[in-house]
């Protein structure tokens, strides 16, 4: 090994310094929210709490756990995420497999029909009118069906099949008299665990975090997903689902709601975002893989 020159040493110092700065800046808001969620709200709003928790209290979490709207939202989100992800896989995988087979006729035309949707779409209003005329407003289908699969996902899964399922294997099975159904369910699916995991994860994160479809397609409060409830608490600063709030007058009620929102906002952020943030480092390689296969040019 040769010695590091002075300029290289200086570069290293600057580089580590720069990255530490970026990391601190990225991490600080998350730490702050975590600490604030278990600190006394007075210490948070006065600025006494700025990094580590001050006057630790779990009052915010207690309020969150007591709030019916949050739990209903949580339950709905889990339901939408699981159902939507299953539906995503059931539509995506067979389609991508079929498109990866060379014996499929009119493949170019079909691919073109799918890819064109990336370039142009009807837009918000015409799509809304279709959902409405199909009677899907206020049903779970309005949440899980629009965007159930995208051209990008199909291309990625198709590329995976082309690269990872050996053609000879499929040909050999065909000579043995296996049907396409048999080949897909008994051979392709078992070989494709990584791509299934990647696709399911991406779609599940998207469903967990989306609020806009629920905002426009759902009016029934019992069906609201967590993100809509979070929007009310964090941004509109209204807290529903509190049984005690009903008795108070209108203005007092609003004030009371704002106070509760102040108390629970950090706890509710943690409760909603923590599952993903905890699970994600373990699944990081899958997500990274997903981005990378996705970037492979056709």
């Amino acid at each position: 090994m040769y010695k590091l020159s002075i300029s290289d040493k200086a570069f290293n110092v600057l580089n580590y310094g720069f990255l530490s700065f970026v990391l601190a800046l990225t991490f600080y808001p998350l730490i702050y929210v975590l600490s604030a969620s278990i600190s006394d709200p007075a210490a948070v709003s006065s600025g006494n709490m700025w990094l580590w928790p001050v006057d630790i209290t779990f009052e915010g979490y207690r309020k969150v756990f007591e709030n019916n709207a949050i739990w209903t939202g949580y339950r709905n989100t889990i339901f939408y995420t699981v159902l939507g992800t299953l539906l995503h896989l059931c539509i995506l995988l067979p389609c991508a497999w079929a498109l990866s087979r060379k014996e499929l006729m009119a493949k170019k035309a079909i691919l073109w029909v799918i890819l064109f949707t990336m370039l142009f779409n009807g837009g918000l209003i015409p799509t809304y009118l279709v959902i409405k005329s199909l009677g899907m407003l206020n049903t779970v289908w309005a949440i899980v069906v629009p965007n159930v699969v995208g051209a990008w996902a199909i291309l990625v899964a198709r590329a995976f099949f082309q690269q990872n399922v050996p053609d000879q294997l499929v040909e050999a099975a065909k000579i043995d008299g296996a049907s396409d159904f048999h080949i897909f369910f008994k051979m392709v699916i078992p070989l494709s665990a990584p791509i299934i995991a990647v696709m399911a994860l991406f779609h599940a994160v998207g469903l967990w975090n989306q609020y806009f479809n629920a905002l426009i397609y759902l009016t029934d409060q019992d069906m609201y997903p967590l993100q809509i409830i979070l929007r009310e608490i964090l941004i509109l600063q209204e807290v529903g689902g509190d049984s005690a709030a009903g008795a108070v007058g209108q203005t007092e009620n609003l004030l009371e709601q704002a106070k509760t929102a102040e108390l629970i906002k950090y706890a509710v952020i943690i409760v909603s975002a923590l599952p993903l943030l905890i699970v994600y480092p373990f699944l990081q390689r899958f997500f990274v893989k997903g981005v990378l296969i996705g970037s492979v040019k056709e």
């Binding site: 990225t26 929210v33 967990w208 608490i233 964090l234 993903l276 990274v288």
Partner: peptide
């Protein structure tokens, strides 16, 4: 990478 997994609602809430 972590903040990517936080929803827009939560980011705006923060």
């Amino acid at each position: 990478y972590a903040p990517h997994f936080i929803s827009v609602v939560v980011v705006v809430g923060m």
